[in-house]
Computed example of a mutant assay.
Amino acid sequence: MSDTFEYRDQSRTPARYFALGAAMASAYLIHSLGLPPLHQLLAVAFVGVVLWRIADNSIHGFRLSRSALEVFEGRYRRRIALAEVASVTIFQTVDDDTRCILNLRSGDRLSLPGAERFGTRRLVAEFAELGLPILI
């Protein structure tokens, strides 16, 4: 295991910037062709939505290090010391998605966002390397 195991998915991607360019080009084209105001308003609204998504830059994922686990879910951020984790439940759903549930010593359960990107073996190996009890 490396020192840090991380998965992040965020709004600022090349595809999102391409969508911004396409939206701006279409808004300019609609304006220069003199199309009805409704079309212009829709084009500007589309540019606004894409700009908002880029500016907001919601992040979805987690970072696992030797001392703590950080969870990112939109604007929600949480840092959990590994000593607070009682066990980890990792399983595969009927749809072949991997799920990872952190069972905390406080009794809370926290679903790990982004775990579906990895297979159960990889997650089991990463958590086992840290000495956490794993329930499969």
Rank of each mutant, 00 (worst) to 15 (best):
F91T: 10
T98R: 09
E116S: 15
A83K: 09
I90T: 13
D96M: 10
R105L: 11
V85N: 01
T89V: 12
D97I: 06
E129A: 15
V124C: 10
F72W: 00
I101E: 07
V94D: 01
L112Q: 01
V85G: 03
E116Y: 09
R117K: 15
V124P: 01
E126S: 12
G119V: 09
A128I: 06
D97E: 13
I80W: 02
S106N: 15
T93I: 11
F91E: 08
Y76M: 08
L104N: 11
I101M: 12
L123W: 05
G119F: 03
A125Q: 15
T98V: 06
T98W: 01
A83V: 09
D95Y: 04
L104D: 12
R105M: 09
Y76D: 10
A128D: 13
E70N: 07
R121L: 10
A83M: 05
R78S: 10
Y76T: 15
A81Q: 14
L82Y: 01
E70A: 09
R78Y: 02
C100Q: 05
F127P: 08
R109D: 03
I101D: 01
E116V: 14
G74D: 05
G74R: 10
E129F: 10
G114N: 03
R105P: 00
D108Y: 02
D95S: 12
R78A: 11
L102D: 00
V88P: 00
F91N: 08
